[in-house]
Write a protein that binds this DNA or RNA. Structure first.
Lengths: 206, 206
DNA sequence: AAGTCATATGACTAGCAAGTCATATGACTA
DNA sequence: TAGTCATATGACTTGCTAGTCATATGACTT
């Protein structure tokens, strides 16, 4: 975490540093991101940087933390209390909020994608850790419940299907998060419908 | 492409260099792979390296070329002449051969994944270029044909479905290519069945 | 034996990186 | 006014990188 000196900074200067860091991490992997570049862009000295953060990793984790905080605000009622809602409704909400986050925070999205696409990097293990596994488990619980309630046919392989839905959702959001601004809203709704239709045809109870 | 001097080398020495390069590119992105590391591992001098290859990119492209050659040997009759075979058979073959390649050539697979996961890198554009787009188009042609023949229901969005099948196949192979050796053959067959079942339920004509 | 030519070498250049540290500033305190 | 303390600075160290080049080797030719 950033040092006290960082939080003591005037809001404006702090934001300038965050902006500079995001600009660098948007366009570079963790390894190839340069602190020299960041401080030059934020117009602070090398020494100051190291009085705000322990090292590059410290700064990076802070940016990721900010992203997670932002993402939290996109949780819908159905996501917060999934068992009280229909399975397909929950899945739809998750994808919709994912798409909306990507739309509203393209810079965070880019940084997140760079992280997600480098699972072999040590920093991935440190940050994502068991998150992926937990997500699979969550999907499995939802699927099991949906089979109980009769929403989903019972002859699927739950673990496998959970993984596939997770993967497909991620790819779906990654791939389509570059829709142009003007047709965004309609494009989103339409895409989501196609996606859900594919999914529902695949596993919905007949 | 490598220089003549490289091809004049005794087979054994050439292989040692390829091995060293693969070891490095398996565990590092193109940028962070180190020529110093490669020459040290291959036990050749810096000067020699630059008499075999123009630069790091030259070597890297050669490795990718070797991988493509290997992959070519996995093409099945159904893949070579897809319109003479059933749609789901072709898709099944493509995934099966993808899985088999991953199993038999885990080192190439790892290198390929690192490349595929960095679409923002200049080298990606240079090597993959429009390959992805071509793949989408190929899937679209197959889907259109399958709709004509009545294998696939006609009320799907072809372009969207093509993308999703492509993405899902890639992820499926990536994710499952780490099955353990002993249960490989049965595991593969079972997985493929689950995958195809999900797909067929999703888009097969009723 | 003398000459030629492909191949091999590693010291060297130039550049960039992360992180350190002695020094400076300037506000607030006693 | 003198002292203290948080903050700011950039030259510097250390360590890495890709790529170059003068020099050396040794096989084969004339």
């Amino acid at each position: 975490m950033p040092k006290d000196t960082f939080y003591n900074l005037p809001e404006e200067k702090r934001q300038k540093i965050i902006d500079a860091a995001m600009l660098e991490f948007e366009n570079n992997s963790f390894d190839s991101a340069s602190i020299n570049q960041i401080i030059s862009s934020a117009q602070i000295s090398k020494g100051s940087f190291y009085q705000y953060f322990d090292d590059k990793k410290d700064l990076y984790k802070h940016i990721i933390e900010l992203m997670i905080q932002k993402k939290m605000t996109y949780i819908t009622p159905a996501m917060q209390n999934p068992f009280a809602h229909g399975f397909f409704e929950v899945i739809r909400d998750m994808n919709q909020s994912g798409l909306e986050f990507a739309k509203n925070h393209p810079r965070f999205t880019k940084i997140g994608n760079l992280l997600l696409r480098n699972p072999s990097h040590p920093i991935y293990l440190e940050i994502i850790s068991g998150g992926q596994e937990q997500a699979y488990k969550a999907y499995e619980m939802l699927l099991n419940r949906a089979i109980e309630t009769g929403e989903v046919r019972s002859n699927i392989d739950v673990a496998f299907t959970a993984k596939m839905i997770f993967k497909l959702s991620s790819e779906f959001i990654l791939e389509e998060s570059d829709l142009t601004a003007e047709n965004w809203t309609e494009g989103l709704a339409e895409l989501l419908n196609k996606f859900m239709s594919l999914l529902e045809n695949g596993i919905k109870a007949k």
